[in-house]
């Protein structure tokens, strides 16, 4: 692995010229994107735009890529997913990724603790009493919203400094989406950064500092939250959402 220090310091995520393929099909083209420490950034785009592929490429799960992903000032190169996770990148997949063969408590305690700001189990249970109540249940016996909480709590317990959230609001009731918004604002206050994939534009505008619009694998626009809110209708139309 090349230990190239980039200009950025601190826990910054920086993608430059990232492209990705599935066989012959190119699904990401020359994506440049940064997430600064403590920043909440969304990636908005319609179905099939390449949002999940982008997160999986950052995690090292999708390997057919070109360009660079750097984290903490170091080019991740070909680093394995487990190494990236231990370097402080926390992945919350679109299917929440809860293990059915592990109890709620085990789901929470499975990943190794990697950061000094890792939440303790007690802290998690205090924030999410329902996880404490159901701690001995199989993970997938939780409701969709509870599984989402568990998936987020799991990477916070690990001490991740950057959360990759793949459509956390999808299919959840408005109160629960609101609760997830609160959690995102709370972890932002603790200096944790978030790269949030969202199709729920209204929800995105309540939590994020900046937005990237992705269409057919390209970043077509990058905006701060104010201009995003002003132009919401126009952008939605443009994205065909």
């Amino acid at each position: 692995m090349t230990e190239k220090r980039t200009a950025a310091t601190g826990s910054t995520l920086e993608l430059s010229g990232l492209s990705a393929w599935y066989g012959e099909a190119r699904v990401l083209s020359d994506v440049d994107l940064t997430v600064a420490p403590g920043e909440v950034v969304t990636l908005v785009g319609r179905n099939g735009a390449g949002k999940t592929t982008l997160l999986r490429s950052v995690m090292g799960l999708h390997r057919q890529v070109q360009g660079s992903v750097s984290w903490d000032g170091t080019d991740l190169g070909k680093a394995s997913p487990d190494k990236r996770a231990r370097a402080g990148i926390g992945w919350v997949p679109d299917d929440r990724g809860i293990y059915s063969t592990l109890s709620v408590a085990e789901n929470l305690q499975l990943p190794p603790v990697t950061g000094s700001d890792a939440w303790s189990v007690e802290q998690v249970y205090e924030q999410f009493p329902v996880l404490h109540e159901r701690r001995d249940f199989p993970g997938t016996k939780l409701s969709g919203g509870e599984q989402q909480m568990l998936a987020i709590a799991r990477v916070l317990r690990m001490g991740s400094r950057l959360l990759l959230l793949d459509e956390p609001s999808e299919g959840l009731a408005p109160v629960i989406v609101q609760r997830i918004g609160e959690i995102i604002r709370q972890i932002k206050d603790q200096g944790v950064s978030v790269l949030l994939v969202e199709q729920n534009v209204k929800f995105a505008s309540t939590v994020a500092d900046r937005h990237y619009l992705l269409a057919q694998g390209r970043v077509v626009e990058s905006l701060d939250n104010d201009s995003f809110q002003e132009r919401t209708t126009e952008l939605l139309e443009y994205l065909g959402m």
Partner: peptide, 20 residues
Amino acid sequence: MIVRASTEDAERSRALGINV
């Protein structure tokens, strides 16, 4: 616990920092 998790989904376990 690690064996069960990796049996269920090895890729996911890797992404959670486990050296499968």
